[in-house]
Each structure stands twice: as structure tokens, then as C-alpha cells.
Design a protein around this nucleic acid. Structure first.
Length: 746
DNA sequence: GGGCCCGCAGGG
DNA sequence: CCCTGCGGGCCC
């Protein structure tokens, strides 16, 4: 390995110029680092590897020696930003580069560097900058940034998943920090450290927020008491699942969370919900968060936006073209009496409630999750059974128009009274209240990163898990409790799952769960390492006892033999606690707010909720761009008879703009006296931002047509397991129905 | 296969 | 607290 002590050890720049001798280097004179792929000018290296080792050569930046000199404690040196800049090169992915740039450009970071450069204590800047505090204590030793999708080694060191993977893929089997061996098992079965993810996210969100008091928000409500499956009481049985009580919600997203459900949100499987995932019914679908309401087709809040929709055939004139669809809003049906559902449209829909939510998502270009149910019999894209998650779509247009389901008119293919298969433009002519996005969509395609948030996602106003009646009660009770500071919320993320207190001597298991060292070891006190066995007087070889992680079924017997404290996390916790103490002293008052730290979850969670309530009127958004929602004039709808809200949804490679043509063309834009539908165009988009993203992003299709946003590929595993429920190949389907692709029918 | 019927979850 | 909602088992 090259020596790191030579100060002149510098790589070549991106255009191939050696940063030592300033000469444009030829490929043959370069040595590429097997870890970061950066080229180095061989003649300028202080030492060169033997020819046989060239393939495995690791550059000075990536080699352990140098990394050591870049440990967080060294960040305080004035040249730290330079070091960081150089280190960025070790993570060649563009994405990281982008992250790094914006990172360095952040005022917060600059402030941090300055402060540290002159040797001041950092804590002052920390108090208001949780992000810089985290950044100071937790750095990936490869890229020197806050770890992205952090993984923790059994020796207690934290890295970006990607950086660490690259290291492993290059055959390294020792921790870059401490040289502790990394077993094959650990290397192969990396798990994201969710506590870190949450903390970093929270800090990021706080940092991005324009005002100081606001919060992001990952509140957890007790959910564990619920069974894994939905259940129906004896009395309610006859009425079917409408009367079932929800089972446990498995994902850690709030009901008003927008976008894909990533592995970070899926502590059970650490996998996330992927396109093509399939459930037996709406209840099960709900438990995995794809679509929460178990009857209603739209999940959303009128001022916040709609998070998901279910396509299940409730409205006759919906069109499903796979990549885009038309969706009718809710309302306008007479559900009085004991008729809890009515197919008849008896009055106008308006852009209120859930329809307003759709419109908010349309205006802002939020990602909308889409599930299809087998009940949508008329769609070739519907699954044969159950409910399937079909990825992220975007609502392109909303309008109201006279539909076919009015009281006075029922049009269906059988009756031959086909509405003209108009292209969208035509339909839009007849429509009223046309809404479309004016600005840039919040969720959009980026050439480098694929589909992603272009702005800070809307801040959740709800607790992560719903459904526990106790939670509801607590909501009210806690409504008056005080808000938690960012520091307190961060500390909450670092609680031990066993004692529920902020961790002391935190250890991270290979399955990425965090506990106090004492708690973890204590829970196996009565178990010896091996079990003596005998049979019929004969002594058998001792069998190793399986020791399950307290949070999951993983066997962590090996790990707990010598669990290493996660010092990064410990440092963060200590910093946070010191800050809290200081503040308490400064306040001198007896009732410091840090006391809230030991409060029950419910207390705290609902307290945050309370805090959020204050923001609700602003659409729950803190980003100015989100404020568009404020301008929505929900009352602008007037004098329409029987209006339904429709959504037009679009899929990837299709031409979208003209949605219209569908098979029968349902919408009889006819003379029916009333029945305007509120419609929405939705286009499909999705990228999973997680481990899976690596596999998925490349599959995103970008259309020439700006209306469409992209589509995520189905999970191949899901397809294998259950072929009949596989997500349809939309392109094929289109071939079968060429008409659908024609621009306009006369 | 169609419709009844019922009582959950969530918005407001 | 009231109202609504693209469920679904069961009975006919």
C-alpha cells in the first residue's frame, strides 16, 4: 500500500491532470484505486505497489492509514474543508458529489468550519444546528460525510452503505477504522441503522426548515398491541371486512406521508414496499401502508394533499390505461339510510375534502401511491385477486365534468351509449374547474438521481402509526403539553428498545438494532453460550444456543459475545445531553423541558402533533413552494349539477397529454343534466430511494412527454412468487389494445 | 353473481 | 362528534 505520509500524494483531477506534477497523464501512467476508482499518477506516488497487486491497489485516501487522520476529531483543523473536498473524490457517484457540494455550501456547515478553525467550542453552533452536531460526531470514514443509508459494523463503526459495500466488494474484510475483521455474514447481510437514519433525517429536515421551531416528524404511537392480522368481532362478522378492526401497521410512515415506502420505513423486513407487492385485501394493504383507508379510495387531507389512491372499480367511467388513468373523486352519492354504498351518482362532486386533497397533490406535483384492486373488473391492469401496489404516480390535471353515473343517466358499454372517446383536450373543453400544476412538481425526474423530491417533502402532521384507540385518547390529553426541542426529539431516536431510555453505551447489532450494552447483555443473562446435550447417557457435542435479537428474529449470539459500543452514537448522545443540561442550568427554573424526555411515547408524540397543528393552516408545509396549496380556491366551484371529480392518471412511456381515448370512452359528455365529474390525470413515477433503488432507478423510463413521470419496475421476486399477480406489462397491453394509443377517434 | 348490511377508520 | 367511504362475508 502506498504510504500516506507523503504530503505530495494527490490524485489526478477529473480531466486527468495530476494534481502533483500538473501534467496531463496518460491512462498507462495511471493507477486506479480499487476502492474509489480514482486515477493516480503513478510516477508521482511516493510508493507504488508491485505489478501483481495493481488490481487491488488502494489509494492513500482510501487506505486505512489516511482515513485515521481524517477521523472526526481532526475535522477541526482549518483545512478540513479541503480534506472533505478531496475525500469526496473517493465516492465517485454523482449523487454523492451533489450531496457533498450542497453540504459544503450550507451556511450551517460553513459556520461550523469557521468556528472550529478558530478553536472555539463547537457546542454553541450545535445548539441550534443538530445537523452539524450529528455531522461532527458521525462521519463515514470513506466519504467523510454524514453516512447515507448508514450501516454499522459489529465493531461499532458507521459508514454509508455504498461506501462500505464498495470496500467489501474490493475484497476488504477488515473495518477501515479499527481493522476488526468483518465476517462474510456481516458483509453479505448489511442492514441500515434505522435509528441513525431517523436522526439524520430529522436533523436534515430541521436544518432545511426555514423557521426555527418547526419539526419534522417522526412520532411513534403505540402499535404493538395490535395483532398482526385484522380481526372482526363476532358481532360484526356478517358484514364483512368493513367492520374489521385494523391489524398492526407494519411500516413506520405517517398516514400523511407522501412517496414510496422505503426499507427505512419497514423495520420488519427492512425491505420497503415495492411495485408489484400484493396483498389479499384492503386491510392487509393498509397494514403495509400503501393505502391506509380500508374502504375509501383516496387517502388524503384537504389542505395537505392526497398520498394514495385505490383503483377498484367503484366508478364506472374511470379509465385505466396502465400508465395513466382517469380517476373519479369521491362524493356525490347518496349514502343515507342503511345504504352505505350507492352506485348512483345523485349530486355533484366538489373539490372539497378528499377531492381537494387530490387537487393539492396535483398542484404541487406530489408523488401519489397507487394500488389496484381485483375489483376493478374492467381494467386489464387490475390484479386477478387482492390488491397490488403499482408504484408512484403524479396527478397531472383535475377537472369537473358531467359524467356517466348521474342519477339521470347511466351509460355503459352494454347499453351502447358510449361516450365519445375524446382525447383529454376534448374532455377538458367540456370540463369545468380545470386545475393543473403551474410550477415545478415537487416530485420529479432528475437525470442523475431518477425520481425524487425536488423540494423538502411536506412535513407530516400525524403520528407514524395510527389505529390504536389509546393513541386517540392521548392525542387529546397531550394536546396541551409543550413542544419538544429538536435536541429532545433527536435523543428520542436514540432510545434503547429494551429499557426505552436514551441509550447508555449504545451497541448496534448486525441486524441494525440499537440497545444499551447492559440491556442487551442482560437479556441473555440466563443463557449460556452453548447447550450441553446428552442422549441416553451419551454426551453429544454441545450445541450453540440461538440468541435472538430482542427486536427481530436474527441470531446475534456471535455478536453479543463481544459487543462493541457504537462510539459515534454515544458521542452524539453525550453532546445532546450536555447541551440539555447546560440549558437547564441556564434556565435555573425547576421545570426544564428536558424532563419530557422520560415521558411516555404517547405524551411526547402527541405533543409534537400539537405543535404541528399550528402549521396545518398553512397546508402543513414549511417550504414556500408548498404554499401553492394556499392559493387553491376551494369555493370557486359554483353552479354545476351533479359533478364528479375525476383524476386522469398517466403512466410512463405513453403519450400522456391526451389521455382520452379509452376503450369505450366512458365519459359520455353528453347532455345529461348534471353529473359533472371531477377528474384528475395522474402519471406514474417512482423511484425507490433505498438499497433497492440501485436496482430500480435504472429502469425508470422517461418519456418525451412531460406529462408522464416514470414508472418503477416491479419487484422481480414478487413476480416469481405469484405469477398471476404480477404487474402487467403495460407496453404489451397497449399493443393488444391499439386503439388506446390512437390519438383521437373522430 | 348480485346486493345487503354493517360498523371501522378517518376527515373535518 | 358526525358524516362519509372504490369492503367484503354471506344470503339469496
Amino acid at each position: 500500500m502506498a504510504s500516506s505520509s507523503n504530503p505530495s500524494n494527490l490524485p489526478c483531477s477529473s480531466d486527468g491532470v495530476c494534481m502533483v506534477c500538473k501534467v496531463l497523464t496518460a491512462e498507462v501512467e495511471q493507477l486506479r484505486c480499487s476502492t474509489c476508482a480514482t486515477p493516480w499518477h503513478t510516477p508521482c506516488l511516493s510508493s507504488t505497489p508491485p505489478l501483481t497487486d495493481v488490481a487491488h491497489w488502494v489509494c492513500p485516501d482510501c487506505s486505512g492509514d489516511v482515513t485515521a487522520s481524517y477521523l472526526p476529531s481532526d475535522v477541526a483543523r482549518p483545512e478540513s474543508s479541503l480534506i472533505a473536498a478531496i475525500r469526496i473524490r473517493c465516492c465517485p457517484s454523482k449523487r454523492r458529489l451533489v450531496v457533498a457540494r450542497s453540504f459544503l455550501a450550507m451556511p450551517v456547515m460553513q459556520g461550523l468550519s469557521r468556528t472550529e478553525a478558530v478553536g472555539e467550542n463547537v457546542e454553541d453552533s450545535e445548539s441550534n444546528n443538530p445537523l452539524s452536531m450529528l455531522n461532527k460526531n458521525i462521519n463515514c470514514s470513506f466519504c467523510m460525510l454524514l453516512p447515507e443509508r448508514p450501516v454499522t459494523t459489529p465493531c461499532g463503526h458507521n459508514f454509508c452503505l455504498k461506501c462500505f459495500r464498495r470496500w467489501i466488494e474490493n475484497g476488504k474484510r477488515a473495518c477501515v477504522n479499527c481493522r476488526a475483521p468483518i465476517t462474510q455474514k456481516v458483509a453479505q447481510d448489511l442492514r441500515i441503522n434505522l435509528a441513525l437514519v431517523q436522526a439524520i433525517r430529522m436533523a436534515n429536515a430541521a436544518n432545511n426548515a426555514s423557521t426555527t421551531g418547526e419539526t419534522t416528524v417522526y412520532h411513534y404511537k403505540e402499535n404493538e398491541d395490535k395483532p398482526d392480522r385484522a380481526f372482526t368481532t363476532e358481532r360484526a362478522k356478517r358484514a364483512g371486512m368493513a367492520n374489521t378492526s385494523s391489524g398492526q401497521i407494519f411500516v413506520t410512515i405517517a398516514p400523511d406521508y407522501f412517496g414510496p415506502i422505503l426499507e427505512d420505513h419497514d423495520p420488519r423486513r427492512n425491505r420497503g414496499v415495492r411495485v408489484g407487492d400484493h396483498w389479499k385485501d384492503r386491510m392487509e394493504c393498509r397494514q403495509w401502508g400503501a393505502h391506509f383507508p380500508h374502504i375509501a379510495g383516496i387517502a388524503g387531507q384537504s389542505t395537505h394533499g392526497a398520498q394514495s389512491v385505490a383503483l377498484s372499480g367503484g366508478y364506472l367511467d374511470d379509465e385505466d390505461h396502465g400508465e395513466w388513468f382517469l380517476y373519479t373523486g369521491s362524493g356525490g352519492r347518496d349514502l343515507s339510510g342503511n345504504k352505505r354504498t350507492s352506485k348512483e351518482q345523485s349530486f355533484d362532486q366538489k373539490f372539497e375534502k378528499l377531492n381537494a386533497a387530490l387537487r393539492v397533490s396535483c398542484l404541487n406535483g406530489y408523488p401519489v401511491r397507487v394500488v389496484r384492486s381485483f375489483k376493478e373488473k374492467r381494467s386489464p391492469y387490475a390484479p386477478e385477486s387482492g390488491v397490488r401496489y403499482d408504484g408512484i404516480y403524479r396527478i397531472e390535471k383535475c377537472w369537473r365534468k358531467t359524467g356517466v353515473q348521474g342519477t339521470f343517466k347511466v351509460c355503459s358499454d352494454e347499453h351502447g351509449d358510449h361516450p365519445r372517446p375524446l382525447p383529454d383536450i376534448e374532455e377538458l373543453k367540456n370540463a369545468i374547474d380545470i386545475t393543473e400544476r403551474k410550477g415545478n412538481p415537487a416530485w420529479d425526474f432528475d437525470a442523475t438521481d431518477g425520481w425524487k423530491w425536488m423540494i423538502t417533502p411536506p412535513i407530516s402532521t400525524k403520528a407514524v402509526v395510527t389505529g390504536d384507540p389509546r393513541g386517540k385518547k392521548m392525542q387529546g390529553a397531550a394536546r396541551h403539553t409543550n413542544n419538544l426541542s429538536m435536541r429532545e426529539r433527536l435523543l428520542k431516536e436514540f432510545r434503547c428498545s429494551i429499557c426505552r431510555n436514551v441509550m447508555e453505551e449504545p451497541v448496534t447489532t448486525p441486524c441494525a438494532h440499537n440497545f444499551c450494552k447492559k440491556c442487551l447483555l442482560g437479556s441473555y443473562d440466563n443463557l449460556s453460550l452453548t447447550e450441553e446435550r446428552s442422549r441416553g447417557g451419551r454426551i453429544l457435542r454441545a450445541r450453540k444456543i440461538v440468541k435472538k435479537c430482542p427486536s427481530c428474529p436474527s441470531d446475534i449470539a456471535d455478536f453479543i459475545q463481544n459487543p462493541q459500543v457504537n462510539r459515534d452514537i454515544m458521542n452524539v448522545i453525550e453532546s445532546l445531553q450536555n447541551e440539555a443540561e447546560k440549558e437547564d442550568h441556564a434556565r435555573v427554573s425547576g421545570e426544564g423541558s428536558s424532563a419530557a424526555l422520560v415521558d411516555s411515547d404517547d405524551e411526547n408524540d402527541t405533543a409534537w402533533e400539537n405543535q404541528d397543528d399550528g402549521n396545518l393552516d398553512e397546508g402543513g408545509c414549511n417550504n414556500p413552494e408548498d404554499m401553492i396549496t394556499e392559493s387553491v380556491d376551494l369555493d370557486s366551484v359554483t353552479n354545476v349539477d351533479n359533478t364528479e371529480n375525476k383524476v386522469e392518471v398517466q403512466q410512463p412511456h405513453k403519450r400522456t397529454a391526451g389521455a382520452g381515448k379509452g376503450k369505450g370512452g366512458k365519459r359520455a359528455r353528453t347532455s345529461s343534466p348534471g353529473d359533472a365529474d371531477a377528474r384528475n390525470i395522474v402519471t406514474s413515477t417512482e423511484t425507490l430511494d433505498g438499497i433497492a433503488a440501485d436496482e430500480n432507478v435504472a429502469d425508470l423510463v422517461q418519456t418525451e412527454d412531460c406529462t408522464f413521470t416514470g414508472v418503477e419496475r416491479a419487484d422481480p421476486n414478487a413476480l416469481e412468487v405469484d405469477g398471476k399477480n404480477m404487474i402487467p406489462d403495460f407496453s404489451e397491453a397497449e399493443k393488444v389494445n391499439p386503439k388506446q394509443d390512437q390519438e383521437v377517434l373522430p
